[in-house]
């Protein structure tokens, strides 16, 4: 099997060609190691980081930005969004604080991406 894709690991946007079957893939067109990792992952288990917001009480703003601390399977993005939507936190919050542990059984935590003081 052969698939053309564009690497999203960085803004370079290299055009990759991934060839092979079941766990035995070769990537060409990449200009760094991340391109190879991305190419193989897109064939086997595509992953994305999910950034979003959660409700925060007692802060200057009503939304706290968050993200999954690591990538989660692409097919689980909407489940992850649903779980994130139910989170409500209280200020103060520090950048990196876990607001939701092990989201949807992915083993990945959802963490705050901004510090917000109570006010």
């Amino acid at each position: 099997m052969k698939k053309e894709m564009i690497c999203i690991s960085c803004p370079m946007g290299c055009h990759l060609t991934v060839e092979g079957e079941d766990g035995n893939y070769t990537v060409t067109g990449n200009t760094c190691k991340n391109g190879e990792i991305y190419g193989i992952q897109e064939m086997t288990n595509p992953q994305r980081v999910v950034p979003s917001t959660v409700v925060i009480k007692g802060a200057m703003l009503s939304r706290l930005p968050v993200k999954t601390a690591d990538t989660v399977p692409k097919g689980k993005i909407f489940d992850v969004m649903k779980a994130i939507d139910e989170v409500v936190v209280e200020a103060p919050v520090k950048m990196g604080d876990v607001v939701l542990a092990d989201v949807c059984g992915t083993g990945v935590d959802v963490v705050a991406t901004k510090s917000m003081a109570a006010c």
Partner: peptide, 16 residues
């Protein structure tokens, strides 16, 4: 709030 910032400066993908 999306990620992808800082690849050149910090060598990692940060959100805004």
């Amino acid at each position: 709030i999306h990620n992808g910032f800082g690849l050149h400066t910090f060598k990692e993908q940060l959100t805004g």
